[in-house]
Amino acid sequence: MNTLLLNTLLALSWIALTGTFTPANLLFGFVLGYGLLAFTQRLLPPSRYFTMVPRVIAFVLLFLAELIQANLRVAFSVLSPRLDLRPAVVAIPLSVRSDPAITLLANLITLTPGTLYLDVSEDRQVMYVHTIHVHDLEQFRQGIKNGFERRVKELLE
């Protein structure tokens, strides 16, 4: 976390040096600071920062791509004259255990169209998910486990 502070400080000093306080310039300062810190990595105390930042960015990009693509799919199914739906409430066995990981996973599931997080059992064994269109239950379970759950686990546990 100290490296994050250092990066923020570098971005702010870039702002002070150039004298234009706009969002784009702040972002540029961050990118510049990150490049500088990555370049002098060996001089700094070891930190998880340099593995975490690309991972977080990849995660956000994957999520945005998924969000837009799946939203379009739902839009098509809403617009089609005959609603072609095969909804189901599916129990998914959980392998993440911590509160933040479960919360993040639940939010991701709800925000990707077609799936809606309903609840987690008291003992944290099973998550119940509602889905609009299901072909194969086992395939759907594996899709969630290998997609979002694996990435959330990499990120938080």
Partner: peptide, 18 residues
């Protein structure tokens, strides 16, 4: 258009967020 509560929530929650 959606026929039950959960499908309606599915449609409204994400499309409105986006």
């Amino acid at each position: 258009r959606m026929p039950d509560l959960f499908l309606r929530m599915s449609a409204s929650s994400k499309a409105s967020t986006l």
